[in-house]
Write a protein that binds this DNA or RNA. Sequence first.
DNA 1: TTAAATAGGACTAAAATAGTCCGAAATTGA
DNA 2: TCAATTTCGGACTATTTTAGTCCTATTTAA
Lengths: 149, 149
Amino acid sequence: MLRLSKLTDYATVILSFMAKEKRRVCAAMEIAAATGIAVPTVSKILKLLVNAKVLMSTRGAKGGYMLAREPEAISVAAIISALEGPIALTECSISKQTCEQASGCGIRANWHLINQTIHNALESVTLADLVRPAPMPEEIHIPIASLYQ
Amino acid sequence: MLRLSKLTDYATVILSFMAKEKRRVCAAMEIAAATGIAVPTVSKILKLLVNAKVLMSTRGAKGGYMLAREPEAISVAAIISALEGPIALTECSISKQTCEQASGCGIRANWHLINQTIHNALESVTLADLVRPAPMPEEIHIPIASLYQ
DNA sequence: TTAAATAGGACTAAAATAGTCCGAAATTGA
DNA sequence: TCAATTTCGGACTATTTTAGTCCTATTTAA
């Protein structure tokens, strides 16, 4: 289904909450309470987002998490790759044997191009866009067909 | 990782093979031999592609599978949805409670737009594009590492 | 010093995916 | 008509991935 994991979905909810509270440091417990997601799960997601430098953390009493940058500078691609690793549709699991039989597998190169297109689409949408009420279609429209001529 | 399933990957290999043999009816066993994918697996994939009307089948001796239309008219989106169901990143697993708390979840509408964009990208690439030799090197060079620092 | 909070990793449970197999139905050709 | 071939449909098992939990160490504020 080409779908995102639940954790990624949760991450967008968490980050949307934090975008509205961006002046404040939020504790994991507070975020869990606000979003209705279980504390250990929230915790796990927050740690992943810190590793990906989407969030900053401060330890100790009065510690917590904060957006590492403005919502405008946090792309959906960054959020997804924080939770799921690099964005890539294929790992070219086509066996070498097959590729050799076909004497040069052109499919691989074309998949890469498709990946890149999708990545661009996700890169051009930010957390600010997700929080914003009205989307702006022309910003994320990508005419992939033009890449093939 | 936003990735396609192995079966979808296999499907592109199978369909690429068939695109080159489009004049001929191919039996499942023949395709398995040509691609190196196990017969039962090939069989399963072919059935799914028939259900999605990407392939046509004829039963009985001398039967087999054929592309239902020209490779130019078979989109990557059609192939993916045949194997994995509708293309959709999210199923909006954001709890209603959260949405209500936030008094109107704008995220949903924005995800829908992103889905649509990706769908358009996949719709505009066809089996013929996949089979076609790779585009110029500079077109397919992807500095992906730079996106992850 | 104590309480509050994150960091990191190990672990279990649940769900999705991959892969296999079988009996039934259809078609061809002898 | 009969036998061989091939798809059809579904059930089934095994594997992998994902989700979710928990524990201990470390850091910081008061």
